[in-house]
Amino acid sequence: MLHIELVERCKTNDRKAQLKLYQQYCEGMFCVAMRFLKNSDDAEDVLQESFIKAFQKIEQYSGEVTFGAWLKRIVVNRSIDFLKSKKERTLELDEGYMHITDDDNWEVDESVSLDEIKKAIDSLTDKYRYVVQLYLVEGYDHNEIAGILKISETASRTRLVRGKGKLKELLKEVKYGTGS
């Protein structure tokens, strides 16, 4: 049976035709997914999702390109989307696995002026400055900061600890005259 006939039968939701197309393309499309994902479990998941999407959207297949080329584009897009979501989850988990100690000691050497502290806070990168300002100056807790900045509470804590560390470095430079 020709691919065109199979595709037309798939458009009528013919399960046997869908199975035939799947059998004809699954191995090749698995290889495509593997080239991106480098993990057979992930490739199998993406492959299944791709075929489901292809059969749901098969009405959109116009025949301008081969069915294989159309399906390959779906597999490639799904693979890229999977990698993007995995990267986002990995970044979020990396912050979550960090051991964060809540150090409430914000004491600064008496020789450092309030203006120097404000100047040091202003020189922090935005992602640290916002959290330090919201926590230290505005008095928000991590739950509130997370809501305001649309980040996780863990990310808020991490950024506060890192921002505080950078702030201490900047203030040491001021105290010992190595700063600007």
Rank of each mutant, 00 (worst) to 15 (best):
N13I: 01
E49K: 01
K11S: 07
D94Y: 09
R15Y: 11
S113I: 06
T158V: 14
E116I: 01
T154M: 05
E49S: 07
S180D: 13
K72G: 01
D41M: 08
E173K: 14
F51E: 09
T125K: 10
T178F: 13
Q56W: 02
F55N: 02
S113G: 12
F30W: 04
W106V: 05
R78D: 06
Y135I: 01
N39A: 13
K16S: 14
V161I: 09
F67A: 09
I148R: 15
G177N: 10
N39P: 09
E173L: 07
E8Q: 14
G179Y: 10
K20N: 07
L37T: 04
V108A: 08
K168I: 15
S62P: 00
F67K: 05
I58P: 00
L91K: 06
L170T: 08
E59P: 00
K38N: 12
D103R: 03
C26K: 02
V137D: 09
I74D: 02
L93K: 13
F55I: 05
D45H: 06
M98G: 05
V108G: 03
Q23A: 09
L91P: 00
K16C: 06
E169D: 14
I117Y: 04
L134I: 02
S50T: 02
T12Q: 14
C31R: 13
S111H: 11
K16D: 15
I80G: 04
W70R: 07
S85W: 01
T125D: 15
K127D: 10
K150R: 10
Q24S: 12
A155C: 07
N143S: 15
T154F: 01
S79M: 04
Q60L: 15
T154G: 08
G139L: 09
G147Y: 02
G177F: 10
D104N: 13
K118S: 13
K84C: 07
T66L: 13
A146Y: 05
E8D: 10
R162G: 01
L136H: 08
A146M: 06
D122L: 08
G179W: 05
D81Y: 01
K119N: 09
E153S: 08
N143L: 14
E169A: 12
I74M: 08
S62D: 15
I100L: 15
K172I: 12
R129W: 02
I117L: 13
R15P: 09
W106H: 12
N143K: 14
G165T: 13
V75D: 01
K57F: 01
F30C: 03
V161W: 00
T101A: 08
F30P: 00
K119F: 04
G163E: 03
L6T: 11
E107H: 03
I74E: 05
G139F: 10
L114Q: 15
N105A: 09
T178H: 04
N13Q: 08
Q133V: 10
E27M: 06
K172P: 00
R159W: 15
V132A: 01
